[in-house]
């Protein structure tokens, strides 16, 4: 499937006509659009109205010490259309003091846990999220372990913990 014959161009043209020049690229038939954090919610709501009704995934990448990366975090929104089967990737780049994007739970209910996972592992805040708690790490955990500056030693080795025997269980 080449990009010229892909029917996603209609959506892209209307998107560019509405929101001005956005950075788009195509790799192996998959289209990627980079938007600014301010325009993210409007772009996603516009894309949902124009047919991309399925939010496949919300995830993030930490570009700390990545060669040539101008920003630290890259949010990834994977969209799909259940009618036409088209797919679209949205990227938002964030930087370190208070990385924050608007929550899209009001558009897709399924974004609730996806955004909680990103908050848990990357520490990216989602403004307007109804219940931004940790999802996969325990409640008392304080760090965001998928950040590249998280220490590799983790929580220590086995000799740091007492072993429970049946006598004091």
């Amino acid at each position: 499937m080449t990009s010229t014959s892909s029917p996603i161009n209609d959506v892209l043209e209307s998107l560019l006509g509405r929101f001005g020049p956005l950075t788009t690229s195509t790799f192996r038939g998959q289209t990627r659009v980079v938007v600014q954090p301010d325009a993210l919610f409007e772009v996603l709501s516009f894309l949902k109205d124009s047919g991309f009704d399925l939010l496949v995934d919300v995830t993030s990448v930490d570009y700390l010490e990545y060669r040539g990366a101008p920003h630290r975090y890259g949010m990834v929104y994977l969209l799909a259309s259940t009618e036409t089967g088209q797919r679209l990737t949205l990227r938002v780049f964030l930087d370190d003091p208070n990385p924050c994007v608007p929550s899209v739970v009001s558009l897709w209910e399924g974004a609730n846990w996806l955004e909680r996972e990103v908050w848990d592992l990357f520490g990216i805040r989602f403004e307007g999220h109804p219940d931004l708690r940790r999802l996969v790490m325990p409640e008392e955990f304080t760090a965001h372990p998928l950040r590249k500056d998280y220490p590799m030693q983790g929580r220590g080795e086995r000799h740091n913990f007492p072993i429970i025997t049946r006598d004091h269980s």
């Binding site: 996969v136 372990p145 590799m152 030693q153 983790g154 086995r158 913990f161 007492p162 429970i164 025997t165």
Partner: peptide, 22 residues
């Protein structure tokens, strides 16, 4: 029994379930 492949570097794995139950 002891954390397995996550023994040294795992930030999320209990280093053996005998730290939790006998």
């Amino acid at each position: 029994t002891g954390g397995g492949p996550y023994f040294k570097w795992g930030y999320h794995v209990v280093k053996g379930v005998d730290l939790v139950v006998p």
